[in-house]
C-alpha cells in the first residue's frame, strides 16, 4: 500500500513518513501542492494525505484536480483546528475523511485502515483467503493453526495481494504499491519477493494461494479445485 503525504510542515511530514513506514506502508512525501500533483500524475496511490494550507497549490486545489481526472484514490485532509468551512468544502469536493491537527497517530492509522478497507470493499481489519488470515491492526498472519512471521516488506506485499484478491496485478503495479520513489528499482525484484513470500505462505501447504499469470503478473486467490 502506497501513501502520499503532502504537508509543508517539515517536522510533521518527516514524522508521518517514519510512522507510516513502520506500519509497512511505502510512503512518498512532498512539501507543496504542485509537487503533490506531479507525484499523483506519475503513480497510483492507495491513500493520499493532503494538508489544506500548502504553498503553490492548496490541498483543496489538489483534491479538485484529482477528482476532475476521475481518480477515486481515497483522500484524507489534514486541517487546522478552526477551519470548519474548509472541511466542509473538502468533503464536498470529494475528500473521504479529515483529521484535525494535532491528532493522535493511532487514530490516523485506524482512519487509513478504514479508507483502504472501504476502497477494496473489505468489511473489517481481518483479511481472509482460504485458511489464510491477516490481521491488519495487530500485524499478524496465520494459515490454519500456524502463525507465519513475515518481514515488513513481505507483510506489505501480502496485504496488497489480499486487498486485491482475485485481481491480477502486474509487476509494475506491485512495484509501485510496495516501494516508494526512494527505492532504486531492479528489474525482477517483484519476482524475487513473490518467490520469497511463497516460501512462507504457500510452500509448506498443499493448496496454493499465490498464482503466476503468464505474461501479466500475479494473483492471490483460493482455487477450490486444487
Amino acid at each position: 500500500m502506497r501513501i502520499l503525504i503532502a504537508e509543508d510542515e517539515k517536522d510533521l511530514n518527516a514524522l508521518l513518513k517514519k510512522r507510516l513506514e513502520e506500519q509497512s506502508y511505502s510512503v512518498d512525501a512532498c512539501f507543496d501542492g504542485q509537487e503533490a500533483i506531479d507525484y499523483i500524475a506519475c503513480t497510483e496511490y492507495d491513500v493520499i494525505m493532503l494538508d489544506i494550507m500548502m504553498p503553490k497549490k492548496s490541498g483543496l486545489e489538489v483534491l479538485k484536480a484529482l477528482r476532475q481526472k476521475n481518480r477515486r484514490t481515497p483522500v484524507l485532509l489534514l486541517t487546522a483546528k478552526d477551519s470548519i468551512e474548509d472541511r466542509v468544502i473538502g468533503l464536498d469536493a470529494g475528500a473521504d475523511d479529515y483529521m484535525v491537527k494535532p491528532f493522535a497517530f493511532e487514530e490516523l492509522l485506524a482512519r487509513i485502515r478504514v479508507m483502504l478497507r472501504k476502497h477494496s470493499g473489505q468489511l473489517s481489519n481481518l483479511l481472509r483467503a482460504g485458511n489464510l488470515t491477516m490481521d491488519l491492526s495487530s500485524h499478524t498472519v496465520t494459515r490454519g493453526e500456524q502463525k507465519i512471521v513475515l518481514s515488513a516488506k513481505e507483510f506489505a506485499l501480502l496485504r496488497y495481494l489480499m486487498m486485491n484478491q482475485g485481481n491480477v496485478l502486474s509487476r509494475d503495479q506491485i512495484e509501485q504499491h510496495i516501494w516508494n520513489y526512494d527505492y532504486a528499482g531492479s528489474s525482477n525484484m517483484v519476482d524475487v519477493y513473490i518467490r520469497y513470500l511463497r516460501k512462507k505462505i504457500d510452500d509448506p501447504f498443499s493448496s496454493k494461494l499465490i498464482h503466476t499469470v503468464r505474461g501479466t503478473g500475479y494473483v492471490l486467490r483460493e482455487e477450490p479445485d486444487q
Binding site: 526512494d182 532504486a184 520469497y196
Partner: peptide
Amino acid sequence: SQLLLLSRADQNRQPLCFEILDFSLLTQT
C-alpha cells in the same frame, strides 16, 4: 533512483531498515 540512493549513502542519509531475517532463505530465493 540508484544515483540518488548512492548520493544519499554518501551523505549518510540513506535509511536502512534492519530486521532479523533468514539469510539462507533469502539467498536461496
